[in-house]
Amino acid sequence: MPLISIKNLQKIYKNEDVETMALAQATFDIEKGEFVAIMGPSGSGKSTLMHIIGFLDKPTSGSYIFNGQESRELTDDQMAEARNNQIGFVFQSFNLLPRTSVFENVKLPLLYSRVPAAEHKQRVTNAIIAVGLEHRADYLSNQLSGGEKQRVAIARALVNDPDLILADEPTGNLDSKSGGQIMKILQDLNDRGKTIIIVTHEKDTAEHARRIIQMKDGEAIRDFNVENRRTMRDGETLNK
């Protein structure tokens, strides 16, 4: 059974009687352990697709099955629960809590999980070590550089040990050096078995993935494996 199974997915937004078709047609499966880039220009429907995959939104029609659960059958609270323990989000603008320590930021998803409080400290510490920020654990989020902020966001996404990491333009707000570090962390996580989906409009960023799903005008028009995959070594900068 694939981790993600998407069939004839459609999303129509209604705004004051004007209907906008944000997503017209998408059908694909993603297996456990894959590293997929959803690529396309703005307006191509890739954000909508990401919202649906991330249980932030429900499709208008079609089917989205994640780990055997059909998203349309879930209540709001069940969607929240799925976001909490099955998916880790990484956003373009980091979205850390301001004036709050790295430790507390990473801990955030645990507050809404069933993980016993006794395990919180160990889990947060492990996640912070995984992104190499153990020397910054007590820093406040606003004392960090952009790249460090995004690493905190990845640690936060990891803390609940989700089945999928969903990253929306994770290098979009970063310089090429920091961007390189982020892509390396994501590739390392993938090498250790994490399923990762990144959404990007940059071809170079997308080519760090193993597979690219190309979106255009609300449709998934191409789905192919990356032949000359870019792999990051320590200190390498991202080609933008």
Binding site: G54, D77, A80, F89, N95, L97, L108, L111, Y112, R156
Partner: peptide
């Protein structure tokens, strides 16, 4: 609003 959005994104339910 942004903070609330983030909390919801990482799994906060309504009653939280």
């Amino acid at each position: 609003i942004k903070e609330i959005g983030l909390r919801k994104a990482v799994g906060a339910q309504r009653n939280h």
